[in-house]
Amino acid sequence: PQLADQKTLAKQIYEAYLKNFNMNKAKARTILTGKTSTPPFVIHDMETLQLAEQTLVAKMVGSAGALKDREAEVRIFHCCQCTSVETVTELTEFAKSVPGFSSLDLNDQVTLLKYGVYEALFAMLASSMNKDGLLVAYGSGFITREFLKSLRRPFSDMMEPKFQFAMKFNALELDDSDLALFVAAIICCGDRPGLVNVAHIERMQESIVQVLQHHLLANHPDDTFLFPKLLQKLADLRQLVTEHAQLVQEIKKTEDTSLHPLLQEIYRDMY
């Protein structure tokens, strides 16, 4: 009976993942390996960026709006924020579908999202990355790693650590069913600062982590150390988010750019 419960939980979480996220690893890999009829538009310099802005991301950049005359770095930063806000919205819906999450104290739900969404976002971002670049605009564009590196500082420091993490993370060859459980485990984490009902969340976390462990053994029988490797990735993601939050604070201080109110809420008093 316990195994049946675990399988049900794994299935519920996987279904919630497929339902709530616009992009997933299977979709991203199909595009990145050239198996789609129309390949993504490659953004590799200022000219191709402008072309992409006129077509793919016109809505995001607001081509007729306030950002039209701003420098490329600011426009790209704004696009990153739009994508982050969308993913946070998707992650919130996903979290609500994880059994037990919605019955938690509302303050604890807020805390789990505040600390979990960026870790989850960077774990999932790896699915859309390869060593040369990143899928953007729902997979219709591909922005190269070299172009992102060539931007002026501090914007050039934004994505490179995510690529470095992604290359190591992608080497683990997780599929969407593994990622669904991994993302759920990131969100339902009992040691976030300020949690009220720690015991309740720890129980949830324990069942998700147990399901993840069994799922990995069944889904990757040749990689017996995959589970401990993934636990290490949780620590790496925490570090990645800490550094990212510091960089965003620096950009906010030194650059004339706005930060979306939702992201401001998340970053405020984070670490």
């Binding site: 739009c82 509302l106 807020v110 300020g194």
Partner: peptide, 21 residues
Amino acid sequence: LKEKHKILHQLLQNSTSPVDL
């Protein structure tokens, strides 16, 4: 905490909520 995280709180309470920049 809810007061400091009004949008997160709103996202948690509503089924779908467009968050415009």
